[in-house]
Design a protein around this nucleic acid. Structure first.
Lengths: 137, 137
DNA sequence: ATAATTGCAAAAGCTTTGCATGGCC
DNA sequence: GGCCATGCAAAGCTTTTGCAATTAT
């Protein structure tokens, strides 16, 4: 995805296009491994030394609100961000902080139909996400 | 589970039994909804006003290390704790911070056999957990 | 006795907030 | 021009840490 596409993406959502916002979304795609805010700040500062921490957090919030990013839960206390919006699951490495996307429509169907058939008492299911732990090799 | 059982549970793991440790594990069972450290502290202070925050965190860490508790991931930045150790999944309410356990061996089998059959390239699966979001009713 | 646990308080780490300045539309 | 976004710095919150005093075994 090129810079110009990011501009359009923001404009289409009614968001103002600023160089900080572009740098942040470019960073997330460039970093590519569900970066934390800290990783993003570090990366963006290379070409944007004066960007401030508060701005990055505000922009990330804005992106999550406008469905440009998803938050990714981790065991630790840092939030990480994922630009993939299609339904997918995550692979968590038990030895490092690596997180990868895992898409599997067949699995989605399998789980969805099982849950639909069986139902959960007193609970209306909206969505589900599988957290798979293991080792990359 | 009675107090005496908690004592035994700790002793069996080679942990020293202290009134703080007992109060903390009792609190978790009493609170019963995957309490946060803050909830636990609040509850324990009723009968144990002088307990300190640091102690509670240290004891929770000890319990997790010794497989007496599991950590539960949340969207927010607070860690929560679960005394159920059997394999299970979690139901997350989208409107509140309620979290419930969900056990479903049939589902576990279904997912396990699908993943085993299909495999994941460059990844060795150790375990998986489903995060189901929706509404309690 | 002695090794582990507690309480206290300080500090760390991540994230949020308020407000004046500056930039986009 | 008007409004929104940014930078800065301070503060907030949860969690961690160090150490002396206390307690369990």
């Amino acid at each position: 995805m090129k810079t110009i596409d990011f501009s359009k993406k923001l404009a289409d959502k009614g968001l103002r296009v600023t160089s900080q916002r572009l740098a942040i979304i470019e960073a997330i795609y460039a970093l590519d491994n569900h970066p934390s805010a800290e990783h993003i700040i570090e990366y963006v500062k290379e070409n944007h030394p004066s960007i401030s921490v508060g701005t990055v957090y505000k922009v990330l919030d804005t992106y999550v609100e406008h469905d440009i990013l998803q938050r990714v839960k981790t065991d630790g206390d840092v939030m990480r961000f994922d630009p993939l919006l299609d339904k997918h699951h995550h692979l968590y490495c038990v030895e490092s902080d690596q997180i990868e996307d895992y898409e599997d429509e067949e699995l989605d169907q399998l789980i969805a139909s099982h849950l639909k058939k069986k139902g959960i008492k007193n609970f209306e299911i909206k969505d589900f996400k599988l957290h798979i732990t293991g080792n990359f090799k």
